[in-house]
């Protein structure tokens, strides 16, 4: 006893205790680090973002002449005033046709490896021309004049404003399918989330989160285990899951990869600015975040091929509102987006 309580050993004990406290403190900080914004916006080496490329991409994104009707632009559905979505359960396209899936936000698309609800597009560049040519969406032929419709390439080449803008953005490359796709992608990569109350809280501004939102964060990582799928800076695992929505018609990711678990599985969406992008889910099944939480609380509705990570949660009424408060804390201050001036000639 005398040995253990000698001043020298007592001091060592204090040091070990301190080191232990520091270590456990450091480990929680390390876990919070997974939510930090990555250093730079990821971008492919053959299409680095420059101000001229982003500017051209923005013109194209807002230009309804990219559609067959000259009436629908990318921004008709990906509307910056509505969280870069459209507020509709599922999109409405060319000829007022109601489409099968909802319009996802394009926010933080730079951080995603795969695009579309079923992940079939492997890059923004590969995705960008799809909606233009899709009969349901914009119904505009890009390089084929079809006898009657004027092609998009011909329309753009006729405008000096576009000829100049393409030349400064992609010198010597001309107006082609490739440069249209590259410019649109550069603009989309520039649409990144701003710091939300949650981000400020991680950085140490402790008063930005309400107690309810903080309790919601604990539930998100713990009892409700949302973090199993909504993880990291962008609150997505970039993975595919069947979360038990009732939708008998859409096979989801299974159309791309014939593996049983993917029947009815869709891409985990980001939760950044999620308060702005109702209705929710690939089919617009829910119109509020409270309805979404209730879905998870029940462990989903349809149980066939349900993800093994979805379980009944038994949340109390307060816990449900806490989760909603936490999700609201992921919505940052929105800088108004200005419209570009489009070339008239």
């Amino acid at each position: 006893m005398k040995y253990i309580f000698s001043p020298q050993h007592w001091r060592r004990g204090v040091w070990i205790g301190l080191a232990f406290i520091l270590m456990t403190g450091a480990s929680t900080a390390a876990e919070l680090n997974t939510y930090l914004r990555p250093g730079a916006i990821p971008q492919p080496s053959n299409n680095l973002m420059t101000p001229n490329r982003v500017k051209l991409g923005k013109m194209l994104f807002f230009d309804p002449r990219l559609s067959g009707s000259n009436w629908i632009s990318c921004a008709t559905c990906h509307n910056p005033a509505m969280g870069w979505s459209d507020g509709l359960p599922t999109a409405i396209g060319h000829g007022q046709k109601i489409l099968g899936r909802s319009t996802p936000t394009i926010l933080n698309s730079a951080y995603q490896p795969l695009f579309m609800w079923d992940g079939h597009a492997r890059s923004l560049e590969k995705q960008a021309l799809g909606p233009i040519e899709n009969e349901g969406e914009m119904a505009q032929s890009i390089d084929n004049d079809n006898g009657k419709l004027i092609s998009l390439l011909a329309e753009l080449k006729a405008l000096k404003g576009y000829r100049d803008a393409f030349e400064v953005a992609y010198p010597g490359e001309g107006i082609t399918k490739k440069t249209i796709a590259k410019a649109l992608s550069s603009f989309e990569r520039s649409i990144v989330s701003s710091d939300a109350p949650f981000d400020l809280w991680i950085k140490g501004e402790k008063q930005t989160m309400s107690n309810a939102a903080l309790r919601g964060f604990t539930l998100f990582e713990g009892k409700a285990s949302c973090v199993k799928c909504h993880s990291g800076f962008n609150f997505t695992d970039n993975g595919f899951h069947n979360i038990g929505l009732e939708d008998a018609t859409d096979a989801g990711r299974y159309a791309i990869r014939k593996v049983k678990i993917l029947i009815g599985a869709f891409k985990t969406p980001t939760l950044r600015d999620v308060a702005l992008t109702a209705p929710y889910m690939h089919n617009g099944a829910y119109s509020t975040l409270a309805e979404v939480v209730e879905h998870y609380n029940l462990g989903g509705h349809a149980t066939e091929n349900l993800s093994p990570n979805i379980k009944k949660l038994n949340l109390t009424a307060t816990e449900k509102t806490d989760l909603v408060e936490f999700m609201k804390s992921l919505t940052g201050e929105i800088t108004p987006v200005t419209y570009p001036v489009l070339p008239a000639e």
């Binding site: 490896p113 993975g239 899951h241 990869r257 599985a265 993800s307």
Partner: peptide, 8 residues
């Protein structure tokens, strides 16, 4: 070999 849930 791939993971169906996480294609990365």
């Amino acid at each position: 070999v791939e993971c169906a849930i996480h294609p990365e």
